[in-house]
Nucleic acid binder design. Structure first.
Length: 506
DNA sequence: TATTGGGAGA
């Protein structure tokens, strides 16, 4: 950048600055290059008597890249005042500065006025921003009215539908689009993942794999790994890992972190660790995934040790990292350590606790039987407690037999989430435990009246690529007898283990 | 000079 400043000074002294293409190049580099300097660009820009569209566009892009949308918009205002005509590049970038619908509507009016409504770059950008404003009907209209649509425009609309929970509409479009590329597949797969349709995501990927012989793109594999992690589709995820090794992929940040998460969620913590160790570069997300991985696999000490290592020589932990560390404390009943970490988080790292952190802390306290303390913490929170937090407290009350508080929290929870069947089940179980059958019946009637249907929770396990499904009281599996025998054996072992521990504690 | 997609969270 110093060299550039010297060149700039030189052009001013020698009069070369009169040649607009030279100044424009200097301006663009300063505003947009990684090694640039936006404020130097601003100086160059202010010294140009009559900037051209290219210069205005460079400044708009620079400000937007720097997350200064208002300044970007004011460049546009100046541009219009000076009578310069915006081009399609201007609008493609500028629409991203529109935070609200009214601003976007105004800008779209300008786009039509200057005749850029059919430009594929502009259309894709506008669709994408309307979608982010949750205005799908407008996004759709812009799409329909554009006479020249390419695969990018289609993909923008598909992403928009997925982002607004309309995953079926997205799929309908996806099937209808005249041409698909790897990004459209990626968009649809990750759209399924974001909407918790993991199996559809995996099916679509398999479909894509069959149709093509080209090298699969990283982004698509990241989305699929995500889906595999969520449903425990071990064989499919493992296939991706082999594919990566066979095709000489680098262990890049997104892909490798998704891999760590996948193996950890499938219970293969050693494989997760192997990827972690192989990665040439790790960032806060990578470390967080690994810490959380240890926590959910019961290797809480290793998780806490890794966190200590991160504090010494890794990137600065963020809010998500602390969710992982608190989860590790939770599984080991480390109440005081958790309090300490929550304090460290805000005092040392300046991270204000979010509802997730309170959620972990309440869960830790409640599981440890410190339900009063948990209740006080909930009431001291700066934000409204959600159902999950009250649910943790209720759970703790039930484990430790605090029925009075459980009753109060249960009523509150049902009031807060009247359509959540799980809440009724939990509270109803509590009444049953107390022998309070009248209230059990009352709750059942309430559920009927409110048309709340209890959804059965299924478990899945994949063995040799075959998925086995289970539900409570299910005897349909061919090995059902053996499974129940093993379960009963396990229960006996757990009971004797817990009896032995109780006697140690007493 | 520009448009779509991608990693960790109770």
């Amino acid at each position: 950048m110093n060299q550039l400043k010297q060149i700039h000074a030189h052009t001013v002294i020698t009069g070369l600055a009169r040649f607009s293409y030279i100044t424009s190049k200097l301006l663009a580099f300063s505003a947009l290059s990684e090694h640039g300097d936006l404020y130097h660009a601003d100086t160059i820009y202010s010294q140009i008597p009559v900037p051209n569209v290219f210069d205005f566009n460079s400044m708009i892009m620079g400000f937007l890249k720097n997350l200064e949308s208002e300044k970007g918009l004011s460049v546009y205002t100046k541009m219009r005042r000076m009578g310069a005509e915006p081009n399609s590049h201007t609008f493609t970038v500028l629409v991203k500065a529109c935070v609200g619908l009214s601003l976007l509507d105004q800008l779209y009016g300008q786009i039509i006025k200057f005749g850029h409504a059919c430009d594929v770059h502009v259309t894709s950008s506008v669709i994408s921003v309307y979608s982010k404003c949750k205005a799908m009907e407008f996004a759709r209209r812009v799409f329909e009215e554009s006479l020249d649509k390419n695969v990018v425009c289609w993909t923008s609309l598909i992403t928009g539908y997925c982002g607004n929970g309309l995953v079926d509409d997205a799929r309908y479009l996806f099937d209808k689009m005249p041409e698909r590329n790897d990004v459209s597949y990626s968009a649809m797969v990750s759209g399924y993942v974001r909407n918790a349709c993991f199996n559809q995501a995996i099916d679509l990927f398999r479909d894509f794999k069959c149709r093509t012989n080209v090298r699969l793109k990283e982004s698509l594999l990241v989305s699929v790994l995500n889906a595999c992690a969520s449903v425990g589709a071990f064989e499919q995820g493992k296939w991706i890992h082999l594919y990566l090794d066979d095709h000489g992929f680098e262990y890049g940040l997104e892909l490798a972190t998704a891999g760590i998460d996948f193996y950890a969620k499938c219970g293969c913590i050693k494989d997760a660790q192997e990827i972690f160790n192989k990665m040439p570069l790790k960032d806060v997300t990578t470390w967080s995934a690994m810490i959380m991985g240890y926590a959910i696999n019961g290797e809480n000490d290793t998780g806490l040790e890794l966190f200590a290592e991160m504090e010494k020589k890794g990137p600065k932990p963020n809010a998500v990292t602390f969710v992982g560390v608190l989860t590790a404390c939770n599984h080991k009943n480390l109440v005081n350590e958790a309090w300490g970490l929550l304090g460290r988080m805000s005092k040392i790292y300046g991270i204000a606790p979010e509802i997730e952190h309170y959620g972990c802390m309440v869960d830790i306290l409640a599981r440890a039987g410190r339900v009063k303390e948990a209740e006080i913490l909930i009431r001291s929170m700066a934000m409204e407690p959600d159902g999950a937090i009250w649910g943790s407290l209720l759970n703790g009350c039930l484990i430790h037999g605090h029925f009075e508080l459980a009753d109060k929290v249960g009523k509150l929870l049902i009031q807060l989430e009247p359509q959540h069947s799980g809440r009724y089940v939990l509270v109803s179980n509590m009444y049953a435990k107390m022998g309070n059958w009248e209230d059990v019946m009352r709750l059942r009637k309430m559920m009927n009246d409110r048309e709340v249907v209890a959804i059965a929770a299924w478990s899945f396990i994949e063995i040799d690529g075959f998925v086995h499904k289970f539900v409570a009281n299910d005897k349909s599996h061919s090995h059902s007898r053996n499974i129940y025998q093993t379960l009963s054996q396990l229960r006996k072992e757990l009971e004797s283990f817990s009896d032995a521990n109780d006697s140690v504690l007493l």
